[in-house]
Design a protein around this nucleic acid. Structure first.
Length: 261
DNA sequence: ATGGCGTACACCGTACGA
């Protein structure tokens, strides 16, 4: 069973890319972030035509998340319960997992934070706290849980093309990394690091300065699996191919593969 | 120190991303 995540930077602009990618990579689940469209503009019919159920939490202009699935989605939850937030950054649903047992899937678009010390940075850290509290509760109810998305955190210096230039800056500051590791401490595994990976593996490259050609990127898109589930993970890869297409998203999809127990 | 590029909305520029 393959599950993937992709920050598409506008689903209006990238719908053709998403459909083309799914036809070449018929994953069971694809989590999307940065839809940048309101609920009523979500292209559920086009996605149904290629065989995907969907749930989504849209927002005009900014944010917005979705889960596409070959199986029907149950117990759909938008946002972090009890965390009052107009920004649409979380959607969760339950579907049959790799061996048929219920799997809780969460699509997450964690805040960017803009600049260390800014109001948006304070919001980012507060949001991660709320996420951690909610995940802790969620994991007690769902032993098989996977949270896929854009975390806007590069967990270690191995996830940054030029760590010395980035010291202390947004995406890598210690409080952000602490927040990310707080999630791991709940009993989640960064599935990408369960396997040998090429050095300088990244999931985001700036549109400017030919960053993709220079591989000047960071790894900020992650698939975290609960300990039980991570034992069934056989691979996690970043698919750089769509980043080289015409008018690409600045993020690449990340795909994890799970087998039955 | 700034802006580079791309998207959205709407205004002829600004906000935001990472």
């Amino acid at each position: 069973m393959k599950l993937a995540t992709w920050n598409v930077n506008s689903l209006n602009v990238r719908l053709g890319h998403v459909i083309a990618w799914l036809q070449a990579n018929p994953v069971d689940v694809l989590c999307l972030q940065e839809l940048k469209l309101p609920d009523e503009k979500f292209p559920h019919e086009a996605l149904a035509q290629i065989g995907y159920y969907a749930c989504w939490a849209g927002q005009k202009t900014y944010n917005g998340v979705a889960i596409l699935s070959r199986s029907p989605l149950q117990a759909v939850q938008r946002n972090i319960p009890g965390y009052d937030d107009p920004q649409q950054r979380i959607i969760a649903a339950t579907l049959p997992g790799p061996d048929g047992a219920p799997l809780r899937v969460i699509s997450a678009y964690c805040p960017n934070g803009q600049m260390v010390g800014s109001d948006k940075y304070a919001y980012k850290l507060d949001w991660f706290n709320a996420l951690q509290d909610w995940l802790q509760a969620e994991m007690t109810q769902h032993p098989d849980l996977v949270i896929l998305g854009d975390y806007n955190v590069a967990p270690t210096d191995a996830d940054v093309y030029d760590p010395e230039a980035w010291v202390g800056s947004i995406l890598v500051s210690e409080p952000e990394r602490d927040a990310f590791h707080g999630l791991l401490h709940l009993g989640l595994q960064d599935t990408f690091r369960l396997f040998d990976q090429a050095p300088k593996s990244f999931s985001w490259w700036d549109y400017r300065q030919m960053s993709f050609r220079r591989n000047a990127g960071v790894r900020i898109d992650h698939i975290l699996a609960s300990t039980d589930l991570s034992g069934q993970c056989t691979a996690c890869v970043i698919d750089k191919i769509p980043r080289g297409w015409e008018k690409p998203s600045d993020h690449a999809p990340v795909v994890a593969d799970f087998i039955a127990r």
